[in-house]
Design a protein around this nucleic acid. Sequence first.
DNA 1: CGCCAGGTTGTTG
DNA 2: CAACAACATGGC
Length: 240
Amino acid sequence: MNREQLSSVYEKLHDRYGWQNWWPIVVRERSVYLDEFRARPRTSSELLEIAVGAVLTQNTAWKNVEKAVANLKREKLLSLPALRSVDTGRLAEIITPAGYFNQKAKKLKALVGFIDAKMKKSLSGLSQYPPDEARSLLLDIWGVGRETADSILNYGLGMPVFVVDAYTRRIFSRLGWIDAAADYDELRAAFEKALPREAVHYQEFHALIVRHGVELCANKPRCGDCPLKRSCGHEPPAKD
DNA sequence: CGCCAGGTTGTTG
DNA sequence: CAACAACATGGC
């Protein structure tokens, strides 16, 4: 899987689906100096919302996460002080639509505990560390695994960390470029090596991968309309 | 109605 | 260390 191959997939997906601008609160501004978009730094509360969303979306449809986040906002619970003081049982009720609500309520509490203990005021404190150190701090939080940590680093903190997920494994193993069972960090390294080291590209590429995995390269793929079919070794289903 | 979502942790052989 | 179970709602 080399740089040209990957860039070509990125371009084709982008041509098909356009800018994803994942996480609505991730605002992009035109750089005055460069002819490309750059992500501006997030505020502390935006960062918290991204981290909360990253936990809530674990193995869960984003639609359900949106409901849970809307509930949190309606109940004025999407802030550090509010999450700190809310009862775990009540938190679980509020986030019910996201599924695994007991687990996730505990995870959100663990996240807040980490911020209080290690970050003083906000996750923004992580930006003073290099990505690998920030990552290892996040991974010590109960309920934060590799994909969740990387989502926070990339989408929240704008770090050049590529997020690997189930769609990434499915799409690129169907292309025949990776082993679907490969280790997470191995895959992450491969993608980071083959892509321009720009956080915003990592953000868009990952979002495009998810979009493609949902719409076409699904469990039951619709290969007929796929923008990648020319380079894909995957056998299309009989009835397409 | 059955399948599966923008995974992680805990347990077991 | 790999395999497997547990965690759970809601959209299509």
